[in-house]
Amino acid sequence: METGSPDDAGTAGATDAVVRAREEPVWTGLPPGLLRMRRLLLVVWLGLLALAAGLLPGLFLGPLWATLALPPLAVLGWGWAMLERNWRSWRYAERADDLLISRGVLWREETVVPYGRMQLVEVTSGPVERHFGLASVQLHTAAAATDATIPGLDPAEAERLRDRLTELGEARSAGL
């Protein structure tokens, strides 16, 4: 049966997996690459800001003004923790007939897209993402409001997902 993530599907019996998929989907989290990338970007930008906020007033107005670097550093520390929470919250599950995407800590959102409704599956990867070996999969249905994106996947996994979704979408195609 086409249920579950690749590493889990082997362990459960086929019928068992179907029953379980109705009750409890098999969730897959994101690889740590996305967290690393986001943290690096955070450190680079806020580090630069802290440097600018601390160094310039510190040099021109007096050493006490260098404490202006503290707020950006506090934001950095807070963001460091937040990014991990957010990264942990992202997960997806391939069920027999639909794809589940769940995300968000404070503002939680869970999306269900039946395979038959997919119009287009996109794999995108920007320059920074490519450097970290990451790719995003984006699903489009006929409704623009369907915001089904899975960021920060391994390119191989992204491509596997794309091919599988396309295949399932063709098999279950339902139009509008």
């Binding site: 404070l106 039946p114 409704r117």
Partner: peptide
Amino acid sequence: VQSVRLAQGPWQRALRLADVRVDTG
């Protein structure tokens, strides 16, 4: 129905409430 979404903000979570959104073509 093209896709179904469940959304829950912090205040809604405290009250154990959630919105269900249904997207159409």
